[in-house]
Amino acid sequence: MAKKGWDEFEIGAMLRTFDGKIDDIAGTRQEDRAYSQNSSYTASVADWRLIKPIFNKDYCIDCQFCWIYCPDVSIISRDKKLIGVDMDHCKGCGICVEVCPTNPKSLLMFPEQADEETEIANWPKKDEEEA
């Protein structure tokens, strides 16, 4: 695209979130939506993160606290079950770990370079004092 001068821009801008038409947006899951390149869903903020959450489904009770309190729509929940973390949109704030009620927690924060399988194998055991 050729570079535009300051007086060549259109006044106001309209961005379309979707390519094509979606009739029932509240009934369409994110994976079924045809996002256009203007939706921030197609962007990534993964490079903001210093620590990342790792989800261990063995301890999860599907309470969905992490889903409701996630500020970045990064906790993926389908059919009332938590299925994972959206690593493109997670900023690593750690709220999901704080609100997790299980013992031991089913979500924990690890350094960005940590390996998911190794960490799940070495998951902390139940904390008896806290219980």
Binding site: I25, A26, G27, T28, R29, Q30, S39, S40, Y41, T42, A43, S44, V45, D72, V73, S74, D86, D88, H89, C90
Partner: peptide, 8 residues
């Protein structure tokens, strides 16, 4: 189905 997207 969320109508607010991540990567804001």
């Amino acid at each position: 189905a969320d109508r607010f997207e991540g990567a804001n």
